[in-house]
């Protein structure tokens, strides 16, 4: 797998690790996600795909359902 590509979070496969490259969307929600530790640069693991999906971010698990206009771009990493 080419590890330099950027993917939307939804395309990550369960169990895969990735670094967040960019969180776009309405400013206040980008802020809220950052408070929860989900921001560009943070490493995450997709535990369960779907809508909502289940993520491991830092020391915690987050369930996330993103709406249109909010997008999390990630860069998969081998881990």
């Amino acid at each position: 797998m080419n590890l330099d590509i950027l993917l939307p979070l939804e395309l990550l496969r369960p169990g895969e690790w990735a670094d967040v490259a960019e969180v776009t969307g309405e400013a206040s929600w980008v802020g809220r996600l950052a408070e929860l530790g989900l921001r560009s640069g943070s490493r995450l693991r997709l535990l369960q795909a779907g809508w909502p999906c289940l993520l491991q971010v830092g020391g915690c698990r987050l369930s996330l359902r993103s709406e249109q206009g909010t997008q999390i771009l990630v860069r998969p990493v081998a881990c």
Binding site: G25, W29, P52, C60, R61, S63, L64, R65, S66, E67
Partner: peptide, 11 residues
């Protein structure tokens, strides 16, 4: 109102 992004921490 705008639909919030649903984020929920699993303690």
């Amino acid at each position: 109102g705008e639909t919030p992004v649903f984020v929920l921490e699993m303690p």
